[in-house]
Simulated scan of single mutants.
Amino acid sequence: MSADVAVSLAVLVGVVALSDVIRRPLCGLLAGTSMRAYAAELVSTFQLCCCTHELQLLSEVGVVPAGVSLTLTYLAAVTHGLTFRGATGNPIGTLAHAYRARISGVSALLRIACQFAAARAARAAVQVIWGRGLSGLHARHALSGFRCASAIRAPLHAAACVELACAFAVQTAVTHARGLRDRYRVHATAAVITSVVCAGGSVTGAVFNPALAFSTLFGCTGSSTAEYCVVYWVGPLLARFCHSSCRNGVLCADLRQSVSSVTIGRHEEEVRHQQHVTGRAQTTRRRQLYVTFFPPVDCNLKKVMAISGHFIRYKSCQKAVQNYSAGVPKLCPLRATD
């Protein structure tokens, strides 16, 4: 590993550590107040933009291979997900929270203002770090006046569509990974971000974050500010609109299916109840008819059995008399006492 890469990795670790040292006590001090969210957005967006500046410098100059650059992107995404403490660092994510009524419109605008302020501060901070000349890469970049080139390498409409697709993929992944545990959700989201950067990085840089684009790309030569706004602001906004529309459509379909299931269930329950009532009525009617044609006899069981016994003995004696008359005497089972 070259000295330039080692210095860049040290800068990344230092930025993350410094941001976390500032964020933890600041969020703890402002806990329970609305200022905590603004402080978290400031520090987290600053961390995100500084790390992206350093990674972009490494990848553009070509000091590291593409595979190593993607690995660093994945590790940076995991680190951001574990340290942001509820902050989004993305105006599109903040607008999504406002759309779902999780935060108010005023709060969303204040958070977006904090994100863009942190993005501008991060750009100034990395220029100060690069101006120190900690590595040959930093010194050469400082001598060039921190010059950067546009990442748009396609027609305007195609570039906007690429950013739209990248933002839509990431927002969908974040939505579906929300129910996972934090340790799984962070890695799943980081994997999707890395895949999107690999797919669209050669066309637009795959930024899909207006504040991050404002910090890293606005002012670079090769494209105008209006083109940057169309690609990196309008594209993610349209992705947010498409994602919300699709999600609402799915929710409406699920709601209709649930209502239909409840209606069908109630109808089936009513039919079963009606069949049960009809069956009971038919059973009652059969009992009434049986009682009408076969009325019950109120008698003693012992008397019935005694009468049956006498009848049986009588029939036996009668048969014995008939046999005696025929010349074959038989013993009569009926005693004299009977």
Rank of each mutant, 00 (worst) to 15 (best):
A87I: 01
I92F: 07
I103V: 15
V78A: 15
A31C: 04
R85I: 05
H138L: 01
L30W: 10
G62D: 00
V43G: 05
T73V: 11
L82I: 05
R85N: 14
L75Q: 01
T71C: 15
H53Q: 05
S19R: 12
G28D: 15
Q56R: 13
L48W: 02
H97E: 14
L48T: 09
T88W: 14
G89D: 09
V15A: 13
L110G: 10
L137V: 03
E41G: 01
G32M: 09
E60N: 02
L42C: 00
R123N: 09
S44M: 07
L70G: 02
A119I: 03
Q47R: 03
S19M: 08
G131F: 04
V43T: 11
Q127L: 02
S34W: 04
L70P: 10
T52I: 06
A119N: 09
G131I: 09
A39Q: 03
R132A: 07
T79Q: 11
G67L: 15
T83D: 09
A124W: 02
T79S: 12
L58T: 00
L48R: 12
P91C: 02
G14N: 13
R24D: 01
R120N: 05
L57I: 06
G67M: 12
T94Y: 11
L72G: 00
S135C: 06
I92A: 06
S59G: 10
E41N: 11
A37F: 08
V106H: 07
V64P: 00
L134M: 11
L134S: 07
V78Q: 03
T88D: 13
R85G: 05
T79A: 13
A87N: 10
V61S: 06
S44C: 12
A87K: 00
A113T: 14
T45D: 03
S59A: 15
L30Y: 04
Q47K: 04
A98C: 09
H97D: 14
T71Q: 07
S19E: 08
E41K: 13
Y99C: 14
R36M: 12
L29M: 05
E54H: 10
L18M: 10
P91V: 10
V43E: 06
V78F: 04
F84C: 15
L137Y: 08
A113N: 11
R23N: 13
W130F: 05
H80L: 14
I129M: 11
A124G: 09
H53N: 00
L48G: 01
S59F: 09
D20R: 08
L18I: 15
H138C: 03
P65W: 12
A76N: 15
L75H: 07
S69M: 04
G67S: 13
T33R: 07
L26Q: 01
H141C: 00
A117S: 13
S104Q: 01
A139G: 01
G133N: 04
R102E: 15
H138K: 07
A117G: 13
R85F: 14
A96L: 08
A118D: 11
I92G: 09
S104G: 15
Q115R: 12
V128E: 06
W130Y: 14
L70F: 09
V126P: 00
A124H: 08
G32T: 03
A113L: 15
S135G: 00
G93R: 07
